[in-house]
């Protein structure tokens, strides 16, 4: 059951509420939603800022990095005086200043299956959202190992994953939703653990390229939370040279060791859905 928004909140989010796809109930949905952001670097700072501004009510930020000078051209929540401090702490402070509606939890740890389990254990709201499958996970990390760990964890917990990556002039974005777009598979269906990769540290990147990809990640996340349109089943590829996007249709790998194990098989999902 949803209650109506306060007058202040109604005015604050008025331009979003005007959209028929959002409305007052959609805004309530956003305020009650939970998003875990893995990696608070270029993508993570942009996406956290946009989701907080839109009124996503609970943001959990996970990253063990400290702010470095080389981060400043593209990691928009940080400034020179923040150098040397935990990224998640600065991001939390900045987001709270911008929108006090948002409950932000900063967790200065690197994501792996052990550290996220401890995080969940210590955060009752996050734990409840996880177990009710009301948590959306955003992968904004900067390496393939973490990307595969995040994907595995999301598949195991039947959580929706919005994964974005950027390097040089190229961006990639996909939504993994095995409940509503099972045919599209997971991140492991696309790239294996030994995939050839491009990353920002070795290839470089421009701030606006990061911002474009992050904005698409935020848009895809809001669309998912608000249930606007069908679950996305593409790999979106951004070309920063031509300033254009391509949509490539994804399909599940029937031999995927992550999402096609017996516990994640289509039959087992259907059985659970019917219970």
């Amino acid at each position: 059951m949803t209650t109506s928004l306060s007058e202040t909140r109604f005015v604050h989010y008025y331009r979003q509420i005007l959209l028929p796809e959002v409305g007052e109930s959609g805004q309530q949905t956003l305020l009650q939603s939970h998003v875990l952001i893995v990696g608070v670097g270029g993508l993570g700072t942009h996406v956290a800022q946009q989701l907080a501004a839109a009124g996503v009510g609970h943001l959990y930020l996970m990253d063990n990095d400290k702010v470095e000078r080389s981060n400043l051209p593209r990691q928009v929540l940080f400034a020179a005086p923040d150098i040397g401090q935990n990224k998640v702490d600065i991001a939390k402070r900045q987001i709270h200043q911008h929108n006090p509606d948002v409950h932000v939890v900063a967790w200065p740890w690197h994501f792996d299956l052990d550290s996220v389990a401890i995080f969940i254990q210590q955060q009752p709201l996050l734990s409840a959202a996880l177990h009710q499958q009301k948590l959306t996970v955003l992968d904004c990390s900067d390496n393939l190992t973490t990307r595969h760990s995040v994907n595995l964890w999301c598949v195991e917990h039947k959580l929706v994953l919005v994964s974005a990556a950027v390097s040089a002039f190229c961006g990639q974005l996909l939504l993994v939703d095995l409940q509503n777009a099972q045919h599209a598979g997971c991140y492991r269906c696309l790239f294996n653990e030994h995939a050839i990769t491009q990353d920002c540290q070795s290839m470089g990147v421009l701030g606006p390229t990061v911002a474009v990809v992050a904005s698409m990640q935020a848009a895809l996340t809001l669309k998912h939370i608000l249930r606007v349109g069908a679950a996305d089943d593409h790999l979106h590829v951004y070309d920063g040279y031509t300033l254009s996007w391509r949509k490539l249709k994804r399909q599940r790998d029937r031999h995927c060791p992550v999402c096609c194990t017996p516990s994640n098989s289509p039959i087992s999902h259907q059985r659970e859905a019917s219970l």
Partner: peptide, 25 residues
């Protein structure tokens, strides 16, 4: 998907491309 590569019979005019993973954030 990689497991389907041996089973995908190429057709005339197929456009085939390869994509590397992008991992940066």
């Amino acid at each position: 998907p990689k497991s389907q590569w041996p089973h995908y019979q190429c057709q005339a005019s197929d456009n085939i491309e390869l994509f590397a993973a992008v991992a940066g954030g």
